[in-house]
Structures are given as C-alpha cells and as structure tokens.
C-alpha cells in the first residue's frame, strides 16, 4: 500500500467514525452530562453567591472530602407542597392523556378511513396548529374561558346560566389546555398505526361473522395498541412537567411540579432545591420514558422488517 492509499483508507474510516462521533459527543455533552450535573447539584447546599450552590468536594489539608447533602430531598418529602405537587401532576397528566385518547382516537380513525388523497389534507389540518406558537394557542383559551370570556358571555346571553362559570384558573382549564396543545401528538402515532392495517383482516372478521363494532374491538383496537401507547406517552410525559399551561390557565391551587420547579428556581433562586425536584421528576418519568422507547424501538424494528 502506498501512502496515498493509506491516507484515503484512514480518511474513509475516520469519516465513518465521524458520522457517529459528532452527534454522539454533542448529545453526550449537552444532553447526558447535564443530567449528571443536575444530580450532583441536587446534593449540594444553597447559598447566596455566584453560583448559588456549594461544592460537593473540598480539598482541605490534603484531605479530599465529598459531602452529600440530602436536605434537598428531605425537604421534598417534608413539605407537603412537593409531595402533593407530584401526585397532582401525575393525576392531571393522566386525566388529560385519557381525554386526549378519547378525543384523538376517533379523529385518527376517521382520518385513516378517508380516501388517500383527502387523508393527507386532513392530517395536515391536524398538525398545522402545532406549527403556530404553543404559547399563543394557550393564550387563546384565556379569552375564551375567563369570567367575562366568550363561553360565559354566550351562555349568559342564551340564558343558560345566570352566574358566570368559574373555568379559568381551575383544573378544567388545565385539562382543556393540555388536550388542545397535545392532541396532534396523540392523533399522529395512532393514525400512522391505523393506516397500516391490512383491510383484508376486517373483511376476514366480517366474513367469519363479526359485526363492524365487534371487528373494531377484536381486531382494530388490539392491533393499534402500539400507536395508543406511543401517543399516550407523547402526551403524558411532557404533561407531567408542563409549566406554561398550569401557569397561564391554572389557578394558584393548581399544583403542578413543573410550576413548582420554575418558582423554586426563578423566584426562590434555590438551585439545589430545583435540581432535587428535577431528579425526582425524572425518576418518576423513567418508567414511562422506557415504555415509550421500547415501543419506539419495536415500531422501528417492524418498519425495518417490512423493507
């Protein structure tokens, strides 16, 4: 081998390595390591300085000491606020995800039943609102739900109610906000799953004596479980940590952990405390995230097998 060949050889190999190495190291530095730092800082003490937390390690008199401070976690447990914050976050996210599924599944199903050329248009119409600002779409509901907002004005104008309904700054408004913002994330994976279904399976079910309703529950629904799981996780996981929606639509008593973390960080300027909140939230979400990734991987595998 001459030098030129060796050179191109190394270039080829390093080129291949670079393809993996570049994105890999970027994610390592800017996605994975930050979590380790969060974990580390959650064990330190808050102080009034820049940065506002203490070092875990010290090097005094030739002795290297690591002090792990568990107070932040004890605080989380001791203060009712955090515990009920976690519980109510999960509750709200779960309810909202269920609502999203109940609304999103029929929409995905109806789109999958459309003729192919209208299908894409309908799908685009579902996704399109997500391309406008999330913040502004949540903001739109303030005007609709508030005390002298559109719904109350309309209902009072029609004489259905005499006193305006209290909707804004209640959990109901938060549910509406989450369902509204995350509906496309539910519809999309379910649609992708449903549209792949082999129509001859339904014909076979009808042929064997199943009525349309029966075939739906015995064939279509079980076969769309992976779409349902993916959609539910795409809604549930970010909802648990949602900040904007409870902040704008929820009331002072709508406890959500994302909001608590935000105020711990920005208002109380307690960085270690906020880190502990984040670590516990992450632990809480590890199971759903694993489920999501497993289904994602399974789906990718199926796709790979088709080709």
């Amino acid at each position: 081998m001459n030098i030129a060949q060796v050179f191109t050889q190394t270039l080829k190999q390093s080129g291949k390595k670079l393809v993996v190495l570049l994105p890999f190291s970027w994610l390592l530095v800017f996605f994975l390591i930050p979590f380790l730092i969060v974990l580390q800082i959650s064990f330190s003490e808050s102080r009034i300085a820049q940065p506002p937390f203490t070092d875990l390690t010290s090097f005094v008199d030739d002795v290297y000491t690591i002090s792990l401070n568990l107070f932040n976690y004890i605080d989380l447990y001791e203060y009712d606020l955090y515990l009920s914050g976690y519980i109510s976050s999960v509750k709200i996210a779960f309810t909202a995800t269920t609502l999203c599924l109940l609304i999103g599944y029929p929409i995905a199903y109806a789109i999958a039943k459309l003729p192919p050329h209208t299908r894409n248009l309908a799908l685009m119409l579902v996704i399109l609102p997500s391309w406008t600002s999330f913040l502004i779409r949540i903001y739109a509901w303030i005007g609709i739900l508030k005390q002298n907002g559109l719904i109350n004005n309309a209902l009072m104008g029609l004489g259905v109610i005499e006193q305006p309904l209290e909707i804004l700054h209640t959990p109901i408004a938060v549910y509406i906000g989450i369902v509204y913002a995350y509906l496309p994330f539910m519809v999309l994976p379910i649609y992708t799953n449903l549209v792949k279904h082999d129509s001859s399976l339904l014909e076979a079910a009808a042929d064997l004596g199943a009525r349309p309703i029966g075939s739906f529950f015995k064939i279509t629904l079980p076969l769309s479980v992976s779409g349902i799981v993916a959609g539910s996780m795409l809604v549930f996981i970010p909802s648990v940590g949602e900040f904007v929606i409870p902040e704008l639509l929820g009331g002072p008593d709508t406890l959500m952990i994302g909001k608590l973390l935000w105020s711990e960080f920005f208002n109380a300027r307690n960085w270690p405390g906020a880190s502990a909140v984040a670590v516990v939230m992450l632990l809480l979400l590890i199971l759903p995230i694993t489920i999501f990734q497993r289904y994602q991987a399974k789906d990718l595998e199926e796709q790979a097998n088709e080709h």
Binding site: D198, E203, A205, D207, L208, A210, I219, P222
Partner: peptide, 30 residues
C-alpha cells in the same frame, strides 16, 4: 345479507390471519 351473516367463508389471498391471535384463536374467531 351482510358478509357477517352470509353462510359463505373465504380464504384470503394474503390469508388475513389475525396477527395478534394464536392459530387456535384464529380458528375459534368465527
């Protein structure tokens, strides 16, 4: 007579076996 009430059964070209059911369950379906 809708397909689900016809005394007619079909073997599909793609077989259309229900992928989430066992052989037994497929046969028991009808």
């Amino acid at each position: 007579v809708p397909p689900y009430e016809r005394p007619v059964n079909m073997m599909f070209q793609s077989y259309a076996l229900f992928p989430h059911m066992t052989v037994e369950q497929n046969i028991a379906f009808g």
